[in-house]
Structure formats: C-alpha cells, structure tokens
C-alpha cells in the first residue's frame, strides 16, 4: 500500500447565512495516496469545491467554519494549524488550480511576477532567479517564447494559455498534491483536452498526486484511478474507476453514468439520454435520512428515516445506500 498523503475524516464545513446554517460539506471522508489521481464528482452545489478549498483553508471565515472533522496531511491535522504554518503547506506541498483562468490571475502584475512570487516565497531565491524559474515553468507547460512572455500581463493570454500559466504557477514549487478544481470547465472543448493532457504530462514528470474535481464523468474515466462521488455535502460512493463505471452501486452514481452522452449507443439504439429528475435538496437543515431519497427511483420507507452508513461492498468500493 502506498503512502497516504491526504486523509480527510468527517469534514464538516458550514456557512452561516441570513437564512440559517448551510451545510455545504457535511461529513466528508476522502483519501489520496502518493502519486494517484482521485476524481471527485457531483453536480453543482454538492460541496466538492468547498471540500477542495477546505483542504488549503481557503474558506472565508466567517461566514464559513469547520464544524467538525480532520484534514490530515501526511498524518498532521491542518485544521488547527496556525496561519504561518499553513502558509508553508500552501503551494509548496499542496497547490490548487481554479476553474476560471480568466479571473484567477491578478490583472495588474505580469505573469512572470506572479509565478516568481510563489517561487521566491518558498525557495529563498532572489527576484532574478525566481523570474528565471518562472520562465522555466512556462516552458514546461508549453508556452512559446517563455523568456518574453513572462513580461506579459494576463490579459495578453487566451483562456487556455492562462490555465497553462495557472498550472505552471501551481507546480512551480513541486507540490506533492495538485488540487484541480474543475480546471477545464470554463474552456473550449478543444482546449479542454489539451489542458488535461498537460496535467497528465506534468503528473508523469513530477509524480504528484492529483485531486481532480469535475462534473464531467468522461474526464474522470480517462484520467483517474479512484473516484469519489459526492451528493449534497456527503460522499455517496467511492471506488476504483473501473469498478465504479462497471458496477455503480448508488442510484445517484448510476444516474450520473447513464447521463453521459454516448455517440456509439445513441446512433445504434436510438436511446434517449437519461437525466436525473429533480434538483439538489436544500443544505439548510437537511432532513434526516438519505439526501438523495427525494430523487431516487428505488426509494423505500427506510431511506427517509436515517442516513445510511458507508459500507464496503467489495475491496475498496464503498457506498452509502441501503440497497
């Protein structure tokens, strides 16, 4: 068994709003081993982004707060860690790439300055050396003319190029874990493939683990070794990728997989693409019982009484369902 890098246990990140407490993340367990790619999937609002930001403690507090749980990074809990200790983990050990490359870079500094800022912070280099490091990073993510482009501002780059810059920035301190929060959602389809390919290439070069947050099941199938499915602030299923796609156990996972458009089948069987009926339930004082109950095809009376526990149905395959 490989070394465990990240082990999230029972994490609850809640937000205080005018209407009450929003339980965005409500008891999430997640494990990432060295060098593996773990997919976190679920629809918008299921808490995957909040989980990702919680790991780096990038949640605004207030209104957010850690209600419960642990975030163990190589055995050390990050939640009680003081600011300056946390800052040594950020970028150096865990780095993050966000969804919106258009707004994730500061418009008033050159791209080189922004990458150099990270390098200078963590590697005790002077500005000139850090800028050279930035140029090297741009070259690694396949941006042409890196020596010249470090002096350009973000608005002089296209969306795909900016995401490359973000990746370069994230990897500049060789982190052990890269959290990619829907890194391709905001990009054109052709660019999406390039960015995923780049991430794969970088992973092979640096050997880091990736936590890939996405709602695109296709992306997961292509890139991940293990998948965690989230629904309404809870993990509902976790399995190795083949197992998950081969025999999904949770009705929600089944629905997700069925809703992937498939060119081959659509053409031959004239099947209709299936959608999951209904919408995500309120995270304000959620009802007891399974959160998916209201949309579930197999719902029974048991489901609405108590939250089902996670159980292991086959080695490494966990599911939160009574079925």
């Amino acid at each position: 068994m490989a070394e465990t890098l990240l082990d999230i246990r029972g994490l609850k990140t809640w937000f205080k709003t005018d209407d009450g407490m929003v339980r965005a993340v409500d008891g999430v367990d997640l494990r990432i081993e060295r060098g593996e790619t773990v997919g976190v999937v679920g629809e918008s609002g299921c808490g995957k982004t909040v989980t990702a930001r919680s790991v780096l403690k990038l949640i605004d507090m207030p209104p957010g707060r850690f209600e419960d749980g642990q975030i163990l990074w190589q055995g050390r809990d990050l939640i009680p860690l003081p600011q300056d200790e946390m800052n040594k983990v950020r970028a150096r050990e865990i780095a993050i790439v966000f969804q919106e490359p258009m707004t994730s870079l500061n418009p008033v500094y050159t791209v080189g300055d922004q990458i150099a800022e990270v390098i200078a912070q963590h590697q005790k280099l002077n500005k000139k050396q850090a800028l050279e490091g930035a140029a090297e990073m741009l070259r690694l993510v396949n941006i042409p003319n890196p020596q010249r482009r470090i002096h350009d501002y973000p608005h002089q780059f296209s969306g795909g190029m900016r995401q490359r810059v973000m990746i370069a920035m994230a990897l500049s301190c060789r982190p052990k874990l890269l959290i990619a929060d829907e890194p391709t959602t905001a990009l054109d389809v052709t660019i999406q493939a390039q960015i995923l390919e780049l991430m794969q290439e970088m992973k092979e070069r640096f050997g880091m683990a990736i936590m890939l947050i996405t709602h695109a099941m296709g992306v997961v199938a292509e890139t991940c070794q293990r998948v965690t499915v989230m629904y309404a602030g809870k993990v509902v299923e976790e399995a190795p990728v083949r197992e998950l796609f081969g025999s999904p156990r949770h009705p929600y996972t089944q629905g997700l997989i069925r809703s992937i458009p498939r060119v081959d089948r659509a053409a031959t069987h004239k099947e209709r693409l299936e959608a999951i009926p209904g919408t995500v339930p309120s995270l304000l004082e959620p009802p007891p019982g399974c959160r998916f109950a209201a949309r579930c095809r197999f719902v029974t009376e048991v489901c609405t009484r108590a939250m089902p526990t996670m159980k292991e149905v086959s080695p490494g395959h966990f599911v939160r369902c009574v079925l």
Partner: peptide, 12 residues
Amino acid sequence: AAPAAGAAAPAV
C-alpha cells in the same frame, strides 16, 4: 460567502 454561494446557492 462568495465561495459558498457558488456551491450552495441552488440549494438555498
């Protein structure tokens, strides 16, 4: 709550 609002808005 911007980060949360993005994630939790549909649920409110």
